[in-house]
Nucleic acid binder design. Structure first.
Length: 347
DNA sequence: TTAGGGTTAG
């Protein structure tokens, strides 16, 4: 049953007899709840009701605006408040920098993380690796990983994914082997990336090894691993094995999986199988996913009317981020760019 | 005690 955040909000107001920190704790949770329900204005409103927002309050607010320039704007407001970020805040801001993408802002965040001794913490480091991978700087990503003293499975997965995405399959598989040697269990992220690397090498033996590994670890029925398997076998020229995986997982595969299977046939010049599969896809109504995917992409890439990150900060009068002010010399005109929310957080 | 990092095609 769906929880209505407004009912919870009413309960928090009624029960506001506890101390200030307890009240803030409940409001922080409410911010997240409102964002998850798509009630952005209400979430921002709750933030402004917190007398003394802490790092969790700010991170919740920034997270609700992740992947949009507003998230970066709120991060600057947080620094000016002043509240120092922790590795969770850094992670969500870097995720936004990777998604926009904004190399310039991300580099500033890396510098700040280093100053705050957060660049090697698992959460911020894995986000840094992701950021450098998305900005096509895999050597930087690798350097960040190598400097993490205590790595976890996500750090490993991030570097494997990043190297595989940047056409460094040998390095990716080397980290995949290291991850296992260090005793970490494989994840759907690391396995799908290892398959992508194997596919780029067109190494059938490697594909089969990772496939067997995914079966042992119970990951072979995962939709993304399954798609990577179809793609991997296809690129190794083993279209029958690709089809075997495809048929086993057809009930859960999405448009990407169908495309991977059709590409496998196309690479063999088997146009009859391609058209047959395409007809089957249309019959099942799967071709409709195309528009769905486009809509999803528009939603997740920060589809605002503002042309670029640079334009956004130019409008805020903050174009030169190289010189962050220590005090608050200038009030930002948040209403000009975000008329539906309060402006006092943006200073 | 809350917030939070990494995947599949072309």
């Amino acid at each position: 049953m769906e929880v209505d955040p407004r009912r919870i909000h009413a309960g928090v107001i009624k029960a506001n007899t506890a101390g200030a920190s307890q009240y803030r704790f409940h409001l922080n949770n409410l911010i997240t709840l409102y964002f998850k329900s798509g009630l952005v204005a209400e979430a921002v409103n709750v933030f402004h009701q917190i007398p003394s927002p802490n790092v969790v309050s700010w991170t919740s607010l920034i997270s609700g605006h992740s992947n949009t320039p507003f998230g970066l704007g709120y991060f600057i407001s947080m620094l000016r408040h002043p509240t120092l970020p922790n590795q969770r805040t850094i992670a969500i801001v870097l995720k936004t920098c990777a998604s926009l993408p904004s190399l310039f802002f991300g580099l500033q965040i890396h510098a700040l993380s280093t100053k705050l001794s957060l660049a090697s913490e698992p959460f911020s480091a894995s986000a840094l690796i992701h950021f450098y991978s998305k900005t096509q700087l895999p050597t930087n990503a690798q350097k960040v990983f190598d400097e993490i003293p205590e790595r976890d499975a996500v750090c490993f997965s991030s570097v494997i994914v990043g190297l595989a995405q940047n056409s460094k399959p040998i390095d990716a598989l080397s980290y995949f082997a290291e991850m296992r040697a260090c005793g970490f269990g494989s994840t759907d992220y690391s396995v799908s990336a290892a398959l992508r690397a194997s596919a780029e090498l067109a190494s059938l033996e490697q594909c089969r090894m990772v496939h067997a590994h995914s079966v042992v670890n119970g990951l072979d029925s995962n939709v993304i691993v399954g798609t990577a398997l179809v793609d991997g076998y296809g690129k190794c020229g083993m279209v029958d094995e690709a089809r075997l995986v495809f048929d086993q997982l057809v009930s859960i595969l999405n448009l990407i999986g169908w495309n991977a299977m059709m590409s496998s046939y196309a690479q063999q010049g088997d146009k009859d199988s391609v058209t047959e599969l395409f007809s089957m896809m249309e019959y099942r109504g799967q071709s409709k996913w195309n528009s769905g995917d486009r809509a999803m992409r528009a939603m997740t890439t920060g589809n605002t009317k503002i042309g670029s990150v640079g334009e956004f900060f130019h409008r805020l009068g903050l174009f030169d981020l190289g010189s962050w002010p220590r005090s608050c010399p200038k009030r930002l005109n948040h209403q000009a760019v975000c008329p539906n929310s309060c402006s006092s957080a943006m200073h």
